[in-house]
């Protein structure tokens, strides 16, 4: 296989995997899960913030909740890949293939990163329409870069979770716990400083915390200099999660082969 074919194969399998495993085969499920549900979640938290703080402008909550919504792809999409492959009976084929599993995994994340960004944008649009969120001071390029970094970092977490699917049967539990933890601890709906100190430390170990803070600052009109540190730290955190995913995948693959638990439901 020449280099061009390899690159083609890398992207092709990402697209096939996404179509097969993420409900795209049924547009109704996709619309309900990826458009309707996130918009209602956004409306709920923005309405709650409006009532609790008595503020008319809920831009901050629109931004926080919109960025958070990328977890639908990064946590549930990427996190569920291995478990879904097992459900379809194709996991053993993937493990048996000589192709690098981690590269295969990264290939699969590309579509989820793209789709995750689209969900964030849909939610922002909904926030502008429903709550009149104010994005007039936003530097669009910087904001877009922040969203990209946020989705990338969250993908790292998703890949780490997904690797556990090789040995864990009930991935729904792990994915839902991760999603609600992100909702609770990333400062989506309140500043992280309001949490107890030990929870604040956990918050800063999670993806999205810094991206959301940076996005708030960008919405207030801050330029690259003010948010660069937060964005770089977030990107670094994403790389760390990816590396952790790589090591976990190797360990989990070894364990699943050794214990012969690969196809056990």
């Amino acid at each position: 296989m020449n280099k061009l074919e390899s690159i083609g194969s890398f992207f092709r399998q990402g697209i096939f995997s996404y179509k097969a495993l993420f409900g795209w085969l049924d547009p109704k499920v996709y619309i309900l899960t990826k458009i309707v549900s996130p918009i209602f979640q956004l409306i709920f938290f923005c309405s709650l913030a409006r009532f609790a703080y008595g503020k008319a402008d809920v831009t901050q909550w629109v931004i926080g909740n919109s960025i958070l919504m990328c977890y639908l792809n990064t946590v549930f999409g990427l996190g569920g890949i291995m478990a879904e492959e097992r459900n379809f009976g194709t996991l053993k084929l993937i493990i048996a293939t000589p192709y690098n599993k981690f590269v295969s995994f990264i290939g699969r994340s590309l579509m989820h990163i793209t789709d995750g960004i689209s969900t964030v944008l849909i939610c922002i649009a909904a926030g502008i329409i429903v709550f009149g969120a104010d994005f007039s001071k936003v530097n669009v390029a910087l904001f877009a870069a922040d969203i990209l970094i946020a989705v990338f970092a969250a993908s790292g977490l998703g890949m780490l979770i997904g690797c556990c699917g090789l040995v864990i049967r009930d991935m729904n539990l792990l994915m839902n716990t991760a999603a609600t933890t992100l909702l609770a601890l990333c400062g989506t709906n309140f500043p992280v400083e309001r949490l107890p100190l030990f929870l604040q430390k956990i918050s800063y170990c999670l993806p999205l915390t810094r991206s959301i803070q940076a996005a708030w600052m960008i919405a207030e009109g801050n330029r690259f200099g003010a948010v660069s540190q937060l964005m770089l730290q977030e990107a670094l955190l994403g790389i760390l999660y990816m590396l952790a995913g790589y090591c976990t995948l190797a360990i989990m693959e070894y364990l699943s082969r050794k214990k012969a638990t690969l196809d056990i439901f």
Partner: peptide
């Protein structure tokens, strides 16, 4: 499509029924 339906039935009820705010 029960799974898809159930995933998007939670927040509308929380919003419309005033469970967390009037």
């Amino acid at each position: 499509n029960a799974r898809g339906l159930m995933n998007c039935m939670s927040y509308p009820v929380m919003i419309l029924c005033g469970l967390f705010f009037p």
